[in-house]
Design a binder for these strands. Structure first.
Length: 784
DNA sequence: GGGCAGCGCAC
DNA sequence: GTGCGC
DNA sequence: GCCC
């Protein structure tokens, strides 16, 4: 029925107009096909963008039983055009100067054609001829004639355009994709609108910022001595600016902590000019803080909301705002900032919306111009010797701020790591931005430019003081954004609200808060913690005490962990919690990797004595290579494919007893229903034996049936964010992933509640198999 | 306005 | 069923 | 909290 539907999705309709309506007849547009498939699956496809490769996999998977499955890519707009064609005089001179078209690109274009993608030759694009099939386009011939490939990515409505790197990655014949170098000047990624407006005007219109060229250096003249000098001067200038900005920031933070806003305003006017030559830039209004920022039934300190209008951010433009502190305390404070934001929104209009994100960073336009003139190499040199300041940007991402974690991790396109692999030369310079090889918090590795912002955000996340579901997700959201911020390039203090909001995952409210943190080094919310919050935070640090119990204990009069220790039974704490309380000090400490190794090996020794064929692995952050861990996760399994078929049943019971005898296991926090089961799990405390100073550590030992190992390895390696993300992807594609396995054909109702368990995907033997099945590029544990 | 992972153990 | 941890 |  979808096939006979007369109307194409609106976006494709435009393409059809361009190409000639005649061809639209029996075609299924990509959008339609996706819609139809998804309707069948009763699920939503909400990935940031389905890459060509991913879509093919996805659609083939879901449509294999349908007729016409091979044509599912019809309507995908891969436009093969020669931009020279649009210039007034036909140009033939450029032919020989172009790079040869990459084998890989040719291959994947061919593949795309085979799957029904539309490759549009220039003649047709300008003057559509319904009788010409797009299949007639010959990539080889196109290359010979010097055409440029413009890829108009297929993007579901309302979703963000993929980054250049993502597109390159998805075009690739395999996971790796084609490197930018290989593509040379041939490929440009454009928004459809750009192509459309070119056609409309019958000429090449100015390219938006979104259009990322390939290698434009070829056509740029070599640098003159004078230009070189300019480059150098520029670098120096940037350095000075960076220093000034840093000084100002430090001074401001100090002042803020010490004195009041009066002193700050004076300081502001004196220091801000250094960061932006124009000085015209509007100062962002820090968003008001609403009642949602406060725990239920509590009131912020007097003057808290008043603070927001007399923001420490200098000449806030909302002086006219008639915010009344009294009114806002109860009401959620919706005045000021947001409204102003909305007012100045995107005056440039839709066509350049993508570019607008860049323009709003001061100095960025000049950067682009600079880049176009001198090329990436010089630009890199400049960046190399210049500390990161405002308005630094890189070609690889569409945003000055990086992409969201989920998208990155799920699709693997344009990930930090894969990019590194392609361009090892840049590795050093970029490493500091996202080096988190110790995600658990060693100081050395958490030295990115935005570390402070991330930390403040995390503190605010911890403030989520209620146990309601809403708050849980609120907290998670903060944490997620903190993680993203940590990976971003430096966020300049003059960053615009808009630009932050443009990042997937950051919304209005957090954007405002980030701005405040970026500019003041902290956030007002943290300057005035309530007593309850302080207590809740301290109490929930105890093992077994979460939000709810902390609240309860606080209500019962507990003011500190020491209070709990004094009379644990008074607060109705569980047995495990009391044990956690006993060892509170030890359990707060992180475990150095060497100690994890030592414990792991001694336990392995015990295990080997019981059954040497039982495998025992150390999971969690240890497997990810962390220098320290919060706890120890040991996974126990046994290869049942051996001749005897013997399992590890009962092994954990024996092992745990042996550990107790050896003085390693100190205490059991929770024990399995069935000690004998294959999935038995012990939750306990342990320590290195025979050592007076050995600290007590958290340890989990869990059994995994051999056939569940692939999923278990993923699950227990984490990190949690990675897990969430890969599970979400599985779910959105009709799978279900948990620690036991990957299931397919899961049917869910409208609310996502699963109706059937689904069936275990067969043929999964390793972690890699699961990654592969879900189209997630492989990552070593240390990179997860 | 719905969704945000899904499970096992203690209570 | 809720709270907590993984 | 954010996204759709």
């Amino acid at each position: 029925s979808a096939r006979s539907s007369p109307a194409r999705a609106s976006k494709v309709a435009a393409a059809a107009t361009v190409k000639g309506k005649g061809r639209a007849k029996a075609r299924l547009s990509l959008e339609q096909e996706v819609d139809r498939v998804l309707k069948l699956r009763k699920t939503k496809l909400t990935d940031p963008f389905p890459t060509v490769a991913e879509l093919v996999a996805h659609l083939v998977q879901f449509t294999s039983a349908q007729p016409n499955a091979k044509r599912c890519l019809e309507g995908c707009r891969i436009v093969f055009v020669n931009t020279e064609h649009w210039s007034s005089a036909p140009s033939t001179s450029a032919k020989l100067t172009r790079n040869p078209m990459d084998e890989g690109l040719r291959l994947c274009l061919t593949v795309a054609i085979r799957h029904g993608a539309t490759l549009i030759p220039p003649e047709e694009f300008v003057a559509p001829d319904p009788s010409v099939s797009p299949d007639q386009l010959d990539p080889d011939q196109a290359e010979a004639e010097g055409w440029t490939t413009h890829i108009v990515p297929y993007v579901l409505s309302q979703q963000r355009l993929p980054t250049y790197d993502q597109i390159l990655a998805c075009l690739g014949p395999d996971e790796g994709g084609i490197s930018r170098e290989q593509l040379g000047p041939f490929v440009k990624v454009v928004k459809y609108k750009w192509v459309a407006s070119c056609v409309e005007k019958r000429a090449k219109v100015p390219e938006t910022m979104y259009l990322l060229g390939g290698d434009f250096r070829q056509h740029a003249p070599p640098l003159t001595e004078q230009q070189k000098r300019a480059v150098k001067e520029r670098a120096q200038r940037m350095e000075v600016q960076a220093k000034q900005a840093e000084q100002a920031r430090v001074a401001k933070t100090k002042l803020r902590a010490r004195a009041g806003k009066d002193a700050l305003e004076a300081e502001d006017s004196g220091s801000d000019h250094g960061s932006n030559g124009g000085g015209e830039d509007e100062v962002e209004v820090v968003s008001p803080l609403g009642s949602q920022d406060w725990p239920e039934g509590e009131k912020p300190p007097a003057g808290y909301f008043a603070h927001q209008t007399a923001s420490p951010l200098g000449a806030a433009p909302d002086k006219h705002d008639t915010t009344r502190p009294g009114e806002q305390v109860g009401g959620g404070g919706s005045g000021g900032g947001v409204a102003v934001e909305a007012g100045e929104d995107e005056p440039e209009g839709q066509a350049v919306a993508a570019g607008a994100r860049f323009k709003s960073i001061p100095g960025l336009e000049q950067e682009v111009q600079f880049l176009n003139t001198y090329g990436q190499e010089v630009m890199d040199d400049v960046l190399e010797e210049t500390p990161r300041t405002a308005a630094l940007f890189e070609l690889d991402g569409m945003c000055i701020l990086d992409d969201d974690y989920d998208g990155d991790r799920d699709t693997g396109e344009g990930t930090d790591e894969s990019f590194d692999d392609e361009e090892p030369a840049k590795k050093k310079a970029k490493r500091s931005v996202w080096a988190c090889d110790d995600p658990e918090g060693s100081v050395a590795s958490r030295n990115g430019p935005n570390e402070n912002i991330a930390m403040v955000l995390e503190m605010m996340a911890d403030l989520a003081s209620s146990t309601t579901e809403k708050q849980q997700f609120r907290q998670r959201s903060y944490k997620k954004i903190a993680g993203m911020v940590r990976k971003m390039r430096e966020i300049p203090k003059e960053v615009r609200h808009k630009d932050l909001c443009a990042v997937h995952g950051i919304g209005k409210k957090t954007a405002s808060k980030i701005i405040e943190i970026a500019r003041t080094g902290t956030h007002r919310r943290l300057q005035c913690l309530t007593e309850t919050e302080r207590i809740a935070r301290e109490l929930s640090g105890v093992y077994g005490i979460g939000k709810a119990i902390a609240e309860k204990a606080a209500k019962a009069g507990a003011k500190s962990v020491a209070d709990l220790k004094r009379d644990p039974h008074k607060y109705g704490l569980s047995a495990a919690t009391i044990k956690g309380l006993e060892h509170y000090d030890d359990l707060c400490e992180r475990i150095p990797r060497a100690e994890v190794t030592e414990l792991y090996e001694s336990i392995k020794g015990l295990s080997d004595k019981i059954d040497p064929k039982v495998q025992i692995e150390c999971m969690g952050s240890y497997r990810r290579g962390a220098k320290s861990s919060g706890d120890i996760d040991l996974l126990v399994t046994r290869d049942t494919t051996s001749s005897t078929g013997k399992t590890h049943a009962g092994h954990i019971a024996k092992l745990w007893r042996a550990m107790e005898r050896a003085g390693i296991a100190v205490s059991t926090l929770s024990e399995p229903d069935q000690w004998h089961g294959l999935a038995a799990k012990v939750n306990g405390l342990c320590r290195l034996p025979d050592r007076a100073d050995a600290k007590v550590r958290r340890i989990d030992i869990l059994g995994v049936p051999w056939e569940e190992m692939p999923a278990a390895l993923i699950y227990f390696t984490g990190d949690d964010h990675f897990n969430r993300s890969i599970r979400l992807k599985a779910r959105k594609h009709g799978y279900r992933l948990n620690q036991r396995g990957l299931y397919e054909n899961v049917s869910r109702d409208r609310k996502g509640e699963k109706l059937t368990e689904g069936t275990l995907v067969l043929g999964i033997r390793t972690e890699r198999d699961i990654f592969k099945k879900l189209c997630v590029p492989w990552r070593e544990p240390t990179l997860r």
